[in-house]
Amino acid sequence: MIINNLKLIREKKKISQSELAALLESSRQTINGIEKNKYNPSLQLALKIAYYLNTPLEDIFQWQ
């Protein structure tokens, strides 16, 4: 199971779900699903999230 700190990191950087979704060329619903652990992002999307949040991938997503 993958757990994530996306919501915590996103809020700390003062970025809304909609703003992050626009940067990622994704939907706000996708970001919401990832944050609620209802959806696991593809590797490509996970890497883009890490890039746009300027945060190491392993700080956002962790195996448990």
Score class of each variant (00 low, 15 high):
63 W>F: 08
62 Q>A: 09
61 F>A: 01
27 S>R: 08
42 S>M: 03
17 Q>V: 13
6 L>N: 02
19 E>I: 09
13 K>W: 07
52 Y>V: 15
23 L>H: 11
8 L>Y: 12
56 P>I: 04
35 E>W: 02
7 K>W: 06
1 M>Y: 07
7 K>C: 11
51 Y>H: 12
44 Q>C: 15
22 A>C: 14
33 G>S: 15
4 N>Y: 09
17 Q>M: 09
14 K>T: 05
51 Y>D: 07
64 Q>F: 07
64 Q>T: 12
60 I>G: 03
57 L>N: 02
6 L>G: 03
57 L>C: 06
57 L>R: 01
9 I>A: 05
25 E>I: 07
12 K>F: 09
59 D>I: 06
50 A>W: 04
51 Y>M: 11
41 P>R: 00
59 D>A: 10
5 N>P: 01
44 Q>V: 11
12 K>Q: 14
40 N>G: 11
23 L>D: 06
24 L>N: 01
58 E>S: 13
14 K>W: 06
38 K>W: 14
9 I>C: 10
59 D>K: 10
56 P>K: 09
5 N>F: 08
19 E>W: 07
28 R>N: 09
16 S>Q: 04
36 K>T: 15
34 I>V: 05
18 S>F: 10
60 I>Y: 03
19 E>G: 10
57 L>S: 03
45 L>R: 00
14 K>S: 09
2 I>K: 11
55 T>I: 05
44 Q>T: 13
52 Y>M: 10
23 L>F: 12
47 L>F: 09
7 K>L: 08
46 A>N: 04
34 I>P: 01
11 E>I: 11
17 Q>T: 07
29 Q>R: 13
3 I>D: 04
3 I>V: 14
17 Q>K: 07
23 L>T: 06
46 A>K: 04
9 I>H: 06
21 A>H: 03
31 I>A: 01
27 S>Y: 03
52 Y>R: 04
45 L>Q: 07
41 P>C: 05
17 Q>I: 14
18 S>Y: 11
34 I>H: 01
34 I>A: 01
39 Y>G: 04
62 Q>T: 09
57 L>T: 03
17 Q>R: 07
8 L>Q: 14
44 Q>E: 14
62 Q>C: 10
10 R>W: 07
64 Q>A: 14
37 N>D: 07
42 S>P: 13
62 Q>E: 08
61 F>I: 04
16 S>V: 03
23 L>S: 10
58 E>G: 12
16 S>H: 02
46 A>V: 04
39 Y>N: 07
3 I>L: 13
20 L>N: 04
30 T>L: 15
29 Q>A: 14
8 L>K: 14
18 S>P: 06
22 A>P: 04
32 N>W: 08
16 S>L: 06
8 L>N: 13
23 L>Y: 13
18 S>W: 11
4 N>H: 03
1 M>E: 03
3 I>K: 13
15 I>C: 07
1 M>C: 12
21 A>P: 00
49 I>D: 00
45 L>F: 14
6 L>A: 01
64 Q>P: 14
44 Q>M: 09
54 N>F: 06
48 K>Y: 05
18 S>L: 10
53 L>N: 00
14 K>F: 08
2 I>D: 04
27 S>N: 14
46 A>T: 05
45 L>A: 03
24 L>I: 15
58 E>I: 09
37 N>Q: 07
46 A>E: 08
52 Y>E: 06
9 I>Y: 09
57 L>V: 11
53 L>H: 02
35 E>L: 05
42 S>V: 04
13 K>P: 00
22 A>W: 09
10 R>M: 07
8 L>C: 15
21 A>T: 03
42 S>H: 06
40 N>K: 14
45 L>T: 06
12 K>W: 08
6 L>W: 00
32 N>Q: 15
48 K>Q: 11
24 L>W: 02
27 S>H: 08
57 L>M: 09
23 L>K: 11
61 F>P: 00
57 L>G: 02
7 K>H: 07
25 E>R: 14
43 L>D: 03
